[in-house]
Amino acid sequence: MLYDVQINDRGQITIPKELRETVNLKAHDRLKLSINTDGRIILYKSDFFDDVEDLIRKDLKNEGLTAEQIEKDLPGRKKELGKALLKMASEVDQEIERGEYITLDQLNEALEGED
């Protein structure tokens, strides 16, 4: 279904209520805009992976990379992060198999004891 919207004088649009409800958009949700190869605007709700990518971009920028270098290095950094997360998950699985783990309740108790 297509929805007609109009840009106001301040460059804003209102997303129709039916569409917001359909895709579960709430006030203060972060949205991303991009342009596809046909020049059409794509609008989507930001998710965890977008947030991680934004953090990687910020790190690369802080390292002094140009916008072009950031785009070139971003896939490699995402791959490195993915490998690190998979390694951590594997290590956790091994700890669980050995019985070397604590529950979240135990962790919370330990952290409360540090105060």
Score class of each variant (00 low, 15 high):
I70W: 03
K87V: 10
G64N: 03
L65T: 05
G82R: 14
K87H: 06
A84W: 06
I70P: 07
G76E: 09
E63I: 01
V92G: 03
L81M: 12
L86K: 14
T66G: 09
Q69V: 02
P75D: 09
K83N: 12
E71R: 06
A67M: 06
M88E: 14
E71F: 01
M88R: 15
T66H: 07
G82L: 12
E68N: 05
L81W: 08
K83R: 14
L86M: 14
K87L: 10
G82K: 14
L85G: 03
E71I: 03
G76D: 10
D73G: 00
T66C: 08
I70E: 06
L74H: 08
G82I: 02
L65R: 06
G64I: 07
I70L: 07
V92E: 13
K78N: 04
D73P: 00
G64Q: 00
L85K: 14
Q69D: 11
D73C: 03
K79I: 15
E71W: 01
S90C: 02
L81F: 11
A67F: 06
L74G: 05
V92Q: 13
P75I: 01
K79P: 00
E63D: 10
P75M: 04
L86V: 13
T66F: 09
G76Q: 09
E91K: 12
R77L: 02
K78Q: 13
K78D: 03
L81V: 06
L65D: 03
L65C: 05
E71M: 03
A67S: 13
E80C: 03
G64R: 00
A67H: 08
A84T: 11
G64Y: 00
A67K: 12
D73V: 09
E68P: 02
E71L: 03
K72P: 00
K79R: 14
P75N: 09
L65I: 02
K78W: 01
L86Y: 09
L86E: 15
S90N: 13
L86T: 14
R77G: 05
G82V: 01
K79E: 15
E68T: 08
A84E: 15
M88G: 07
G82E: 15
Q69F: 07
L65F: 03
E71V: 03
V92F: 11
L85A: 09
D73Q: 15
K83A: 11
V92T: 12
M88P: 00
E71H: 06
K83H: 12
G64D: 02
E80D: 15
E91M: 08
G64A: 06
E91P: 01
E91S: 10
G82T: 06
S90T: 13
S90P: 00
A67Y: 06
R77V: 02
E63F: 04
R77M: 08
I70T: 02
K83P: 00
L74P: 02
E80I: 08
G64S: 05
K78P: 01
L65S: 06
P75E: 10
E80H: 11
K87E: 10
D73W: 04
Q69H: 04
E91Q: 11
D73R: 13
K72W: 05
E68V: 02
R77F: 07
T66A: 05
E91Y: 07
Q69L: 10
D73N: 13
K72A: 08
L81K: 12
V92A: 13
